[in-house]
């Protein structure tokens, strides 16, 4: 067998392997979407059918009429967007200051920021809950946002990027050119951080979008639920409304998939960033 033929065979094998892995990964998702269109009877058939024999929209109708699903999506969206904006803003500002104005006190503060990254949120979740409660912010997006305004990893990420990609001379040239410090931040630093900030935005958005523990303790009123909490609500202590849950989940996937497709590039950047490339 020639070297060329061997490479071709190897590539074919790799393709088949990857295809199988994709199939295994995608099957649950396909099943989930399919289940949304199944009748309760077909739902329990074994082995499960990959494509519903008798597709119905009843589950979706029921989900949208019996639960405030759209409201939950809206809540999640607002929460995730506001959290993203806050995290991007705080990380850009703090990361730049820590990266370019390294006074001793600032470095100490930076180390404190970093230590918050190794304390799991669950550890201070309960005390935070009591504070939010005291503030009367339960069941509100404001209460939800506390704890999602600053991301220590984001500050770290931006600081590293500032140090690696913004030379001091650039800022000095701008100062000589007559720019004020705010102008420099806005017109020179921010444009140069577009890439990492976009990656951070994607990370922050999906962190908020998928978070569960904090919303479920802060949100008790059905209309203030986020998606994650709402979906969990289909599973009561005694029953699981499988067809409704499937339909709701399938409906909820739409914005996620949409966002992913739109932000695909930044998503990959965000993942590589969190794996720390340098």
């Amino acid at each position: 067998m020639s070297a060329k033929a061997r490479t071709r065979r190897n590539n074919a094998l790799i393709d088949i392997l990857l295809f199988l892995i994709c199939f295994v990964l995608l099957t649950p998702l396909i099943l989930l979407v399919a289940n949304g269109f199944k009748t309760p009877a077909e739902m329990l058939v074994w082995p499960p059918t990959l494509f519903p024999k008798d597709p119905t929209l009843e589950n979706f109708q029921k989900v949208f009429t019996e639960t405030p699903l759209l409201r939950w999506i809206f809540n999640s969206l607002m929460f995730a967007l506001l959290s993203t904006i806050a995290i991007v803003a705080t990380s850009a500002l703090a990361g730049y200051i820590i990266g370019k104005f390294p006074f001793r006190t600032i470095n100490i503060i930076f180390v404190l920021f970093l230590t918050t990254a190794i304390i799991p949120f669950e550890v201070y979740m309960i005390p935070l809950y009591f504070q939010v409660k005291a503030l009367g912010a339960l069941n509100s997006i404001g209460g939800l946002l506390i704890g999602y305004l600053v991301m220590s990893f984001g500050i770290f990420l931006i600081r590293q990027n500032v140090i690696a990609s913004i030379p001091d001379e650039l800022l000095e040239a701008a100062r000589i050119d007559g720019a004020g410090e705010f102008w420099i931040f806005w017109r020179v630093v921010l444009p140069l951080l577009k890439g990492p900030l976009a990656a951070l935005a994607v990370l922050a958005f999906f962190q908020a979008w998928t978070t569960f523990a904090w919303p479920i303790i802060v949100l008790t009123r059905k209309t203030s639920f986020t998606i994650e909490v709402g979906l969990a609500n289909f599973q009561s202590a005694y029953t699981v409304e499988l067809s409704l849950l499937s339909a709701a989940s399938a409906a909820v996937m739409v914005p996620s998939v949409l966002a992913f497709v739109l932000l695909r590039r930044h998503f990959v950047e965000g993942i590589t960033a969190s794996g720390m490339k340098e």
Binding site: E172, R175, I176
Partner: peptide
């Protein structure tokens, strides 16, 4: 710096 009426060219051009 901006009021000193100078212009600077840096080694890395900046």
């Amino acid at each position: 710096p901006k009021n000193r009426n100078i212009a600077m060219v840096f080694q890395n051009y900046a």
